[in-house]
């Protein structure tokens, strides 16, 4: 544990360098980390941080869960049905090629500003990588697993899901980062609360340290979410890690 932590020595060094460079340059738009941290502490003490953080995280969780469930279900279905895949796949590739952020203006037309539009943005961003990876995983399930399932009368879909799990998890991991991106983008443009909205307010009132406080918070959130996901994945795919390492 300590040995692993020792590898993070560059982080304080980088923070220190950032501090030194920004101080000596005196740039207004690049405040030193100490100023950002002080502003963060001040905000935590004087403002209702939970009022922005909780709705952001709730939308992130709900949007991600909805899209992940739909993506896995649709992906596995398409992966196992060559006929359906032939029909739908060109559209899937079109859909996933459109940058989700580019669709915000469209969502603005269709959905109410606030939670509906943010959920739509997160769902759209998350759906594709999950769907495409699940489809790929389900398509390439070894036929002998399926023969075995048929011979012993085992439920076929469970064998497909288990065999495709490594691919499905790869898509889910990608989607966690995407969900965070879509959460912020939608809040920057179409929200009256949330982390993104607070950053926009800070920018409007030229409260640069508060803006950076949002950026730092998002970075930390990203690291934490990815860490949580990896912990779950490591448990679920223990067999896969062991097998590929052997």
């Amino acid at each position: 544990m300590i040995r692993r932590l020792a590898w993070y020595w560059l982080i304080p060094v980088a923070a220190l360098a950032w501090e030194v460079v920004t101080r000596s340059a005196g740039a207004v738009y690049f405040p030193p980390p100490s100023t950002i941290l002080a502003r963060m502490r001040e905000m935590a003490a004087t403002e209702d941080v939970a009022a922005d953080l909780v709705p952001s995280l709730a939308r992130l969780a709900v949007g991600w869960a909805l899209a992940a469930a739909a993506g896995v279900a649709l992906g596995v279905l398409l992966g196992r049905s060559p006929l359906l895949a032939k029909l739908v796949e060109p559209m899937v590739h079109f859909g996933r090629s459109v940058p989700p952020a580019a669709l915000l203006p469209v969502f603005l037309v269709f959905f109410k500003v606030g939670t509906p539009i943010q959920l739509a943005a997160i769902v759209y961003g998350v759906l594709w990588p999950v769907l495409v990876n699940s489809m790929d995983g389900a398509r390439h399930v070894d036929t002998q697993y399926l023969d075995t399932a048929q011979v012993f009368h085992l439920p076929r879909w469970r064998v497909v899901l288990a065999a495709a799990a490594p691919k499905i998890f790869a898509g889910l991991r990608l989607s966690v980062a995407l969900a965070l991106i879509m959460m912020v983008i939608s809040e920057l443009y179409a929200s009256s609360e949330g982390i993104g909205h607070r950053m926009r307010e800070a920018e409007g009132s030229v409260d640069i340290p508060a803006m950076w406080a949002g950026i730092v918070l998002l970075g930390v959130l990203g690291v934490v979410l990815n860490g949580l996901f990896l912990a779950v994945e490591r448990r679920a795919l223990r067999w896969h890690r062991g097998r590929t390492a052997a």
Binding site: D142, Q144, Y145, D147, T148, Q150, V151, F152, H153, V159, A162, A163, A165, W239, H240, R243
Partner: peptide, 21 residues
């Protein structure tokens, strides 16, 4: 369909046993 009273041992054990179990 595969009858209930029949079992198969395939050549390629590595693709017949489920690695996740």
């Amino acid at each position: 369909q595969t009858p209930d009273n029949l079992a198969v041992v395939f050549q390629d054990y590595s693709r017949s046993l489920f690695p996740w179990m």
